[in-house]
Design a protein around this nucleic acid. Structure first.
Lengths: 163, 163
DNA sequence: GGAGCGTCGTTGACCCCGCAACGAGTCGGG
DNA sequence: CCCGACTCGTTGCGGGGTCAACGACGCTCC
């Protein structure tokens, strides 16, 4: 395989037909996330971001995570993570714990209420994914979607800074 | 074909492996749009939304569009569109015109400066799409991506309101 | 032809996020 | 030791978004 610097698919101009998949991708994302967010807010009073934060925490060892790591996983700035956790703390869904191994660090830890809230909200989220995303894709195409999306994510994430 | 209510791919539980493509999709979108936004801001002082607004306008007949329609195409609320156009007007990139056929309607119209700005910013955007998105996908997979993303977009957009 | 209802875009209040600056804590070298 | 340089999370500020309420206008029907 050629290790061509970065893209080299061809320079790409406006009105190029290869923009079609890109536009479809953008629209898909916009509509699906909006739907998932609406459903969670309407049925459980949680934004999609808040739900994902709880989800990330429940999958972490001890149901706790350093703020910095949490910010990364949420693709959020550090301050964004701080304020998101602030809200969840106010709602009693997570607690703040000072990190044992690093006194300047803080950890967010899921409370019992947080676990419970997540459990009741999960069906809504999962139903949304099935209804808006998975059910629109032919079964045979799913592996391709997974592979390509993973490649895109890695490429856009990995090529950090340097060309 | 079965007209099964909505999803019926299978109820879907947490930790289901079918969530993998969904997660990859979410990460891909997050990283790619962030990159495109950063690049446009750094090189042209435009947010991705502002760029897309200009792009939509340039593709419209007469380079003008009703506010409502613009909001739809941007997947934005009406007030969101109003404020976005406000900024572009302040920058001199678009102008406001009262709609000829409906006195309560307003239209946004691209100025010469807007067209010019779009033209200079386009290469950055197109390069980003090629580099972060297209070049990560095998050529043979691109049609599948386009087809599936279109299907997902339509499904999440079309099933408006009613089950 | 005016009354009532729907639609269009804007505005005010509020929410959420990123950036830059900060205080607190860690770590390595003199 | 202790002093600088770095890292961690929080905070002030400002940008950008939504929702609800509004004024202006179009439309229909009596």
């Amino acid at each position: 395989m050629p290790t061509l610097a970065t893209s080299q698919v061809q320079p790409l101009t406006p009105r190029d037909p290869r923009l079609a998949p890109w536009r479809a991708f953008v629209m898909a994302q916009a509509h699906v996330s909006r739907r998932l967010d609406e459903d969670l807010r309407a049925e459980h009073g949680l934004s999609l971001q808040e739900y994902v934060a709880l989800l990330i925490l429940v999958e972490a060892p001890d149901h706790r995570l350093r703020m910095g790591r949490l910010a990364e996983l949420l693709t959020l700035s550090k301050s964004g993570a701080t304020r998101l956790i602030d809200r969840l703390v106010d709602d009693g869904l997570v607690g703040r714990v000072t990190c044992s191994s690093d006194l300047r660090g803080a950890e967010a830890a899921l409370t019992e209420a947080g676990v419970a809230r997540l459990r009741t909200a999960a069906p809504t989220h999962l139903r949304g994914i099935a209804e808006y995303f998975l059910s629109a894709i032919d079964a045979e195409d799913i592996p391709v979607v997974e592979r390509t999306m993973r490649a895109v994510g890695d490429r856009a994430c990995g090529t950090r800074g340097r060309a």
